[in-house]
Structure formats: C-alpha cells, structure tokens
Nucleic acid binder design. Structure first.
Lengths: 215, 215
DNA sequence: AAAAGTCTGTTGCAATTGCAACGAAATTAT
DNA sequence: ATAATTTCGTTGCAATTGCAACAGACTTTT
C-alpha cells in the first residue's frame, strides 16, 4: 500500500508543504541512517532503491529487505517512538521524501482532507504489516511440520472435501513453512497416506474430521 | 501502552463525545465478535477480561491471548481494513468501550489536543506490537539453536567480554527461543566448551570474534 | 540448619527434519 | 514431437532437537 494512496498529484504537492516534507538525494552506497539512530520521520522512496540491513553477532551485514519506489520505510520504529534497529543504505541514486511524524499527526489548521488520508494510509500500512507478521508468527508457533501444513492449508481451503489451490510452488511452500523442501514432500506423502488430505501440485483437498465441533 | 495515555479523566469524557464512543456490557461467556466479522471500531476494556481465540483445522478453539482492563484489542485488523480473524469472548462481566476508527481519524472541528493524543497513542500501540512481532520473527528466522541463542544474547550484550544479564530464567529463555529446555542447556554447554560464551544462571559473557569487522 | 521446593545441567534414546542425490513427471523451448 | 529445463517425490543417512528421568545447585521455608 502506498502512503499517498487516494491522494492526487496536485493534492500531494499541497500536502508536502502542509507536513513540511523534506526531500533528500542519496548517492549509490550512501548511508541514509544507521542502527541505533533516533529518527523522527517516515521515509518514502521517490526514486531509486534502498536496502535495510542489520549486523549479526559476528558483525556480518544481514540483508533484511529492499525498499523500492513508492514504498515507505522506517515507519515502524518512528511510530513506536523507538530507535532505529536497522541501517538504511541507498543502492542506487535515490530520492527520499521524509515526512515528520509530528507534522503528520498535527492536522493542519485548514483540516485538509488529504492530510487525513495520509494518516489513514500510514496507519493502514503499519496495521497490514502487523497482520502479515502475525500470520508468520502463528505459522512458526506450530512446532510440528504436520501442523504447519494444516495451518497453511486451512487458510486457503474453501469448503471441506472440495479442491482448492494455494499460490505457492512446492519450493515456495517449503520456504513459507520454514522447512526443507524434501522434508515437506515427505510429510505431504505421509499425510496423503493417512488420508488427511490429497493433493496434486498446488491443488489440495482436505479431509479433516470435525468431530470436536459436532458435539 | 494505554490508548488514553497522557489524557486526563476529564479530557477522556470530552473525548468520548467527540469520537462518539460506545459503551457495551457483556456477560461472562458472551461473544463480543466472531471470526470473519467486519468490525469498524477499536475495543478498549474498561472492566473485566476478554479472550481472543481462533479455531484450528480441527475446529478446536485455540486461545491466542487474554485482554484485560486498560488494554486495547481489535486494533490491528480494524486499522488494516481487514475482517476479524479471531473471536472475542468476555470471560467476566465486562465493559467495553468501542472507538470507531473513522471518528478517531476525523479530527473534530475543534481540533482538540486530546484527540490528537488518542491518534498518536493508537499508532504507537500498533507500531510497538509491530516491533515485538518483528523481533519474534527474526528470532524464528534463525533455524539453528546456536544462532537463536546468539541472536538473543546479542540483543542484551553491553560490551564484548563483559558480563550482562538477561531477564529470563532458563525455562523462559527456552520458551522465547521456541525450543526444549534441556536442548537449550545442552547447546549452552556446547557453546561454553567452544569458548564462544560463558554463563552462570542468567548472567552471560560473549566471546565473539569480530574479525569480519576488523578488515 | 534441615527440609522442601525450584531451577539447571546431563544423559541416553526417540522423533523430526536437513541434506544430497536421483529419477519421474510436468512444463517450456526448439 | 523431441529435447531441455524445471518441479516434485523418494530414499538413505546425518544432524538437530524433543523427551523423560535424574542429580546437583540454589532458594525459600520452617
């Protein structure tokens, strides 16, 4: 989701003034901010690309994610009132727009509608990331592969004993589940033998007994 | 964090009118909302307790979390514009205040300060939950116990080869790391033998070579 | 100080998953 | 249609972690 969703180009430019947005240019390789810095502004990539990295216990730089044009970054810790925990580095010649959180929150006296939209979008971005993280975490909270598989399939199943598809190849499915691909195939074959499910490629069918609900 | 943080009792009551807050009473056991419902209001527990549950693939009700007095719930999917994915049930006689998201976002014409504070607090709640989830997820992304341990310890270490404490007993540490306690003790003993770290109870000392940083 | 209770380390064995290699099936390119 | 490429299932073995049981260390209670 774009933080300027539903805001037209002309409104955008009014908004820039309204929230005193700051545009900065970075050379390829330039550090935008480091881990442990106090940041007060949400970043928005106008042009170029950014990498968010973190140092592990050995000092190795670990790539967390890439941010590209139209995406927002730094919003989590800025809005949480916390220090940065990641480093942001331009990996192209990059233009970043900084939106100061306080200015976003201080609805301007004019009470402009697009200002409200910006706020709404910002909240939505954070909340949606939250949903994404919650799903991943719930998946990981299942310790056994069988349960992880059923957790995933339950998300996509339409109605019992009818076929549905999942948007993953077997390799992607294994990655989502955080396990080895062949271990996944092995377990799927086992579950098929147990008649808990049937599948072919990315089409699945669940035969789950709902006895616990029938009483 | 309380969504009314920094808002006085008197301001609170003005705010209730301003955002048209709705107070509802629930009997012990009463369903507040079900999974798959469309909700437009953030919940705030004034009195009593709530359980958020989810049905697993077998239809078993799984307890996700308990919400008690002063806590906010439903904010994630309301702000994400998504359907509820959980069921909320009162487990006491419970008073819940519902704050409609649109009303929170529509800063009132009077432009009252506490309205802005409410918004700020809401964002902070979501963003902080985000940070929490990110940490858990990053931990789980390490597949090997050794890496999980070092991830945890790196978070708490002050300076190299100096002693620091972690706020967990061994049992809690194992739970945080998502592994069996005795497996954790085993691995800690191994890492101690490898001279990567030293420890006694919840006091630790890291001997991590930073060679990769020294070049 | 002794006793009871809790926390932690250790051990052996079981269960689960990772890994690598290969062949079959399915898809895409020629 | 054939060949090349990718995806998937299978297998055997290795590595990791779970589990249960017990003993020692540490804490709290009496």
């Amino acid at each position: 989701m774009n933080i300027f969703h539903n805001i037209s180009e002309s409104e955008k430019h009014l908004l820039y003034k309204c929230v005193k947005a700051v545009l900065k240019n970075y050379q390829n390789g330039e550090i935008i901010f480091s881990a442990d810095e106090n940041i007060d502004s949400v970043g928005y990539v106008i042009e170029g690309n950014i990498e968010l990295t973190k140092n592990d216990y050995n000092g190795n730089e670990i790539l967390l994610t890439r941010i590209s044009k139209g995406e927002t970054f730094a919003e989590t810790f800025v809005c949480a009132g916390a220090k940065s925990i990641v480093q942001a580095k331009a990996i192209d010649n990059t233009k970043v727009l900084f939106l100061n959180l306080n200015n976003i929150l201080n609805i301007c006296p004019q009470n402009c509608i697009f200002h409200k939209k910006l706020l709404e979008n910002l909240i939505k971005i954070i909340a949606q990331k939250n949903l994404f993280l919650q799903d991943r975490l719930e998946m990981f909270s299942h310790k056994i592969l069988k349960e992880r598989i059923l957790y995933l399939l339950t998300k996509y199943k339409s109605a019992d004993s009818s076929v549905f598809e999942i948007p993953y190849t077997r390799e992607q499915m294994a990655k989502y589940l955080g396990v080895n691909r062949s271990a996944l195939s092995k377990e799927l074959a086992k579950l098929k033998a147990e008649k808990l499910l049937d599948f072919h490629k990315n089409s699945f069918k669940l035969f789950v007994n709902k006895t616990s609900q029938e009483f």
